[in-house]
């Protein structure tokens, strides 16, 4: 009898526990690190015309799962539109690294045109940034940049993406000076 009681209690409790759900993970929001400008007051800001691929205009962080399969994270999102973040980050970085005269010249020619067609990470930890930049009506300079994440996770992905933007800025500065 005792055995039957214990068995019944076990079955009923297993039914009841089955109905309970796990606590849902909360949504995380990310932002690129804010650049540390040394002489924010004196510098001339570069005019940047940024054009993002349509898939980057969503709040969710895009991640290449395997092959051509792209997945948008549900619990990991951009705190503000990527268009604004990248624009802000690049304008700061370029304005800091380029001499004021060069920035003036570029602004007179209608600013820097930048087009980003791919900007995402993958399960292997590789982050890629593909696109092209140009000044006035010159031939666009294409770029394909890759970088490996140092650790797994979304936080490190965003840091690596910021590093890739640094790398792009260096490449542009190298071409212009």
């Amino acid at each position: 009898m005792n055995f039957i009681k214990i068995t019944l209690i076990a079955i009923v409790s297993s039914f009841l526990f089955a109905c309970s759900s796990q606590p849902e993970p909360s949504t995380q929001y990310y932002l690129f690190p804010y650049p540390e400008n040394k002489a924010l007051q004196q510098r001339v800001e570069i005019a940047l015309n940024l054009e993002l691929a349509p898939y980057l205009k969503t709040d969710s962080i895009a991640l290449l799962k395997e092959g051509n399969l792209l997945q948008f994270a549900h619990y990991h999102r951009w705190a503000q539109p990527l268009q604004v973040s990248i624009n802000e980050s690049l304008v700061d970085k370029l304005s800091n690294q380029l001499p004021g005269k060069v920035v003036d010249d570029i602004n007179q020619l209608g600013g820097l045109q930048l087009q980003i067609v791919r900007f995402h990470g993958n399960l292997q930890g590789e982050v890629m940034l593909i696109g092209a930049w140009s000044i006035a009506q010159q031939k666009p300079e294409k770029f394909i940049l890759r970088m490996q994440q140092s650790a797994e996770g979304y936080d490190d992905l965003v840091s690596t993406m910021d590093l890739l933007l640094d790398k792009l800025v260096q490449q542009i500065v190298k071409q212009l000076i």
Binding site: K65, A73, G121, L123, G125, Q149
Partner: peptide, 8 residues
């Protein structure tokens, strides 16, 4: 969500 750099 899947984690970036998980398969590294």
């Amino acid at each position: 969500d899947i984690v970036p750099g998980k398969d590294k």
